[in-house]
Design a protein around this nucleic acid. Structure first.
Lengths: 203, 203
DNA sequence: CTGCAAAGTTGCAGAGACTGCAAGTTCGGC
DNA sequence: GCCGAACTTGCAGTCTCTGCAACTTTGCAG
């Protein structure tokens, strides 16, 4: 039931390892040379697999660098549904999203590197946002379940999710502009503030 | 000064025509066969230019189908800055964005086709959103000018823009799900409603 | 109208992302 | 130990996109 390591045959473990190796290789290389200068062949080579196998694990170069894992989505969706009943939808989302940004299943160094690379490579923005579509759908579905409305019946859940994710992106972008300071604290503070603004109503 | 047709040498006119021909060819073909089944070669051929020239006009297949024009951005930015001074930022954005969705410089049929294709092809979502980044930056800059704050100084402008665009996307997505009905009216109504919700504060 | 420079077009060669297919290889259970 | 299922791999091929070096067209001045 834990989100960490289940289903431990040798086979399954190897798959996890390979998947992680590819992700780490991608991250290392991109940090080293920049996204454009890294080929999928190079990532595969550093990860110790064939070029073809690379694409068995990730459908694209983007995906390998992002290293998104389906279980993260499940985790955050679960978080939404298990929040206290008196929390507003927006507050559920705040908690869930902040959780998603700091997944405890990745070790500290990797997390930091991931953040560094993703924020530092504008070329990855489309991919990140493409990923956001999936996140948005998952969160919307979770929120609809929590509220007990049929999928797609009401506009509000989707709107709330979209606005929340946009807020997070805006904060990231904002920080990216004023690029000084240690990222973690300030960014979280901005996000809290953004959620407050959304709750109070925009002008 | 009009946004329509300026700078009319033969050369300039031909360029506009070619650009438009490529866009229309892309739209036609994608509607006909689906995005994945259309090659840049085919688009170029139908538009009557070489494969290489295609890429002189658009940097990617996506871009050709989207057919985004820089002057649209200028137009919408101008709209923001020339709104009455007592409008809230959010209301400026509402007006400007609704404008952007129905650019009067494209004829009716083309506009309709564009909307049909863009909404009908999930494969284009990343491109659309990628495009949104540019839109977001332009709108943020315009709003900052309107408010007289330095670029990147405050979080609010960017947050407001991001939330607004996200709201529009959410409405589109929402409509995409409940796919019945004539698109135009309902969508606009949803968007109005979404802006009202943003103004009132999300829960 | 003519000749010249700038702008635009084209083909070509090539790099790189990605896919389907048909072997091989390894794992898990019996 | 052995068999089927799951994985990996190489290969051949398609498609997007780029730089480069001709070639053609346009705008313009004389």
């Amino acid at each position: 039931m834990s989100t960490v390591t289940e289903d431990c045959g040798l086979r399954e473990r190897k798959k996890r390892e390979t998947r992680s190796a590819i992700h780490r290789a991608a991250l290392d290389l991109v940090e080293e040379k920049g996204y454009a200068a890294v080929t999928t062949d190079a990532i595969a080579a550093r990860a110790g697999v064939s070029a073809r196998t690379f694409f068995n694990y990730y459908p694209s170069k983007d995906a390998a660098v992002l290293g998104t894992r389906p279980e993260d989505l499940d985790q955050v969706a679960a978080r939404i549904e298990t929040q206290p009943a008196d929390e507003t939808p927006l507050d559920c989302l705040r908690v869930a999203i902040l959780d998603l940004l700091a997944p405890s299943t990745l070790d500290r160094a990797l997390r930091a590197q991931r953040r560094r690379v993703l924020l530092g490579e504008p070329a990855l923005a489309p991919a990140m946002i493409g990923n956001n579509i999936r996140v948005e759908n998952a969160l919307t579905a979770a929120l609809e379940r929590r509220l007990g409305v049929a999928p797609g019946a009401a506009l509000e859940p989707r709107l709330t999710v979209a606005a929340s994710l946009a807020a997070v992106r805006a904060c990231i972008e904002h920080h990216h502009g004023s690029s000084g300071g240690r990222d973690g604290r300030d960014l979280n503070a901005s996000i809290e503030r953004a959620f407050d603004l959304l709750a109070a109503g925009l002008r």
